[in-house]
Amino acid sequence: MGPMRWRHPSRAALRRWLQGEADEPTDAHIATCERCAARLETLAGESDPGGSIGTDALQGVGRAPGLRAALEAALAAPSDLNVRLTTQVHELQQQARWQDVVVDAVGGGLDTLRLLMGDKEDDG
């Protein structure tokens, strides 16, 4: 993102931006300009009097799924995802615990050796 442009973009430039035409100076400007963000919302409302763009009114229009439903369909998770995730997370946690046990055992080093030798003497 480049430095912010001090002059506000024209309505035409904002319209073009809304249409998805990349214009780096405009892009950089509106990224930080509250006033132009508001102008864009107004412009979007003018070109879409039904308000489907600036509001959440897209939900359930005719046979068309709403934007949310479409996004959920496009990013749908596998049906068994949660079962797999639960198992995977649990297994990872178990592995981490075992690693801790091994680290504790090995890290004990001399203490462990002393303990084992002590046990041997006791046994004998």
């Binding site: 931006w17 809304l18 763009i53 897209l58």
Partner: peptide, 8 residues
């Protein structure tokens, strides 16, 4: 705003 427009 722009994303909504493009997705719409």
């Amino acid at each position: 705003l722009r994303a909504r427009r493009q997705l719409t």
